[in-house]
């Protein structure tokens, strides 16, 4: 949400979003989280905190985890942005998403998109992470429901093979 000030200059910014080329008109000060949720209707990415503390807004930029609530949309120009909406393959949940579903790695679901994206970023770099690596990769993602154990198990399950 932005306070009105005179001359909010906007620019056309081009980037890839979930594998498709996009061009949008945004103000430099607009946060990626707001662009995704308000302008593009991709509400899978959540806002959970005042800024940077909960991980609910985690997205991948060039395959690396980033927080959409601290990132300006302008910064994404020329880069590759992926959100939870981009993970399903041909309308089916990805292996990681199915593991969260079947291993009860999700309860209320609010933290889940951020958790899954952070785990996805890890599995792409390290397809067989140990528990320490999984915990380190998810350190910035808060969950009020699961107690984390089921989340770790879900990522381990996905790393082992299709659940």
């Amino acid at each position: 949400m932005q306070r009105d000030r005179p001359s909010p200059r906007t620019h056309i910014r081009a980037f890839r979003l979930n594998g498709r080329a996009r061009e949008i008109l945004v103000a430099d000060s607009e946060l990626l989280l707001d662009t995704l949720r308000e302008a593009l209707g991709l509400t899978g990415t959540k806002q959970g905190c005042d800024g940077g503390e909960c991980g609910a807004c985690t997205v991948l930029i060039d395959g690396r985890p980033r927080l959409a609530c601290l990132t300006r949309t302008e910064e994404c120009a020329g880069h590759d942005v992926e959100t939870i909406e981009g993970l399903a393959e041909n309308g089916r949940m990805s292996r990681l998403q199915r593991a969260f579903h079947e291993r009860l790695g999700t309860q209320c679901g609010y933290c889940t998109p951020g958790m899954i994206i952070a785990a996805e970023g890890l599995l792409r770099r390290d397809p067989a992470p140990d528990e320490t690596a999984i915990r380190a990769a998810l350190a910035g993602n808060l969950c009020r429901c699961t107690g984390y154990v089921k989340i770790i198990e879900a990522v381990q399950e996905a790393a082992r093979g299709a659940p």
Partner: peptide, 10 residues
């Protein structure tokens, strides 16, 4: 929700 001031980026 917090309010982000408007600014330009160079």
């Amino acid at each position: 929700m917090e309010i982000m001031p408007r600014f330009d980026v160079l």
